[in-house]
Design a protein around this nucleic acid. Sequence first.
DNA 1: CGCGGGTTTGATGATGCTCAAGCCCGGTGG
DNA 2: CCACCGGGCTTGAGCATCATCAAACCCGCG
Lengths: 210, 210
Amino acid sequence: MAGIHTVPAILFPILAIMYEVLLDNINRKVTLSAEEQEVIKTCFVPKKIRKKQYVLQAGEACKHILFVEKGLLRTYYTDDNGGEHTVQFAPENWWISDMYSFLTNEPSLYNITALEDTEALMLSNGTFEEMVTKVPKMERYLRILMQNNLVALQRRITGALSDSTEEKYTRFTKTYPDIVNRVPQHIIATYIGLTPETLSRIRKQLLHKK
Amino acid sequence: MAGIHTVPAILFPILAIMYEVLLDNINRKVTLSAEEQEVIKTCFVPKKIRKKQYVLQAGEACKHILFVEKGLLRTYYTDDNGGEHTVQFAPENWWISDMYSFLTNEPSLYNITALEDTEALMLSNGTFEEMVTKVPKMERYLRILMQNNLVALQRRITGALSDSTEEKYTRFTKTYPDIVNRVPQHIIATYIGLTPETLSRIRKQLLHKK
DNA sequence: CGCGGGTTTGATGATGCTCAAGCCCGGTGG
DNA sequence: CCACCGGGCTTGAGCATCATCAAACCCGCG
């Protein structure tokens, strides 16, 4: 699959793999022809982000949608009292962006930053509409993507409204078992809406229960 | 626009108007040809729902997506302790459904019921895929619809996590000024995650502040 | 060894929930 | 026309839960 090409020998296979992950992900929802796959590739630019680097800072408009190929990104914002709240984690195979800012070009309220060194594919402002007109099937893919996100978010809301503090945490560990061990727990606290102290106490209780 | 037809004189104009509202709504996002509009019409069935009637009951699979033409519907669920939580209000021009159950055919956790006598257009399980294959543009419309919903839901989450009790209410009144006056406030309380008592006290405070 | 980020532990206080009663108002039936 | 009823809203008192503030601890790393 790799090798016989006019591209620098080292660079090519790496890129090929990156795009494969993305295309696999898309092909799971819709079926793309070979040409369509080529078009898609041209729309995305690979990008490496170092741990603690920012992809988006509150105040600027969000110019990109990112597909995470490896690593872990996080969207968060800080409220009027200086409290941080994480909106989303994006590990491998996830998309991340501030869609509102991306679409309207208004300054974003959110920050997107790397919790680990990560590699992502970047789809930018300008190329987005170009992509969906060239490959209309992407509308369907995106529709399904958004739809799934929507149901997940709805779950999160109902959880936030009705779960006990303990359930909030255990639900998180069940929903994102991989993430639990990859991020400091005071950040998880900002996701489920607790202080780090109470989260710590909850975990203690859970140990004693077993 | 109405009149010269073989359809019962009274029935026709009513139906025509109903579909107009729906088509207007869709045409605001994508442009449909006359034929496409006809196809869309055939996919939706008009339905009247009396106040307090159920469109969906927890336990059954959700077979429909509804577009509200007039009136007010509401999605809610009751948690393990018997507490009610409203997930969504759907006034005129809004869509409502349990997408998860609709897509997977699993029994729904939610109830959908009418807060007012309402008139809606119903798209059912079977016709959904038929519609999007016949009118692929609908994928784009739906994508945009889902996207906007997503953005709104994210707002709601961040609000739930960081807003003070008072802000939760004032934000609601600003976001849904029409709904505030149409539904009993103990139901609004279940939307923003407060008890009716505290909501009452909040409102009192707000009066004294003015 | 010492520093710093992250987690734990404790004491205290505010906030919102629970339970219980009273109130307001519109609707119904005598 | 009045009496009563019920749903919804309000008010109050007591209590549980979590946030806050502050200190100690743990551990990996320079």
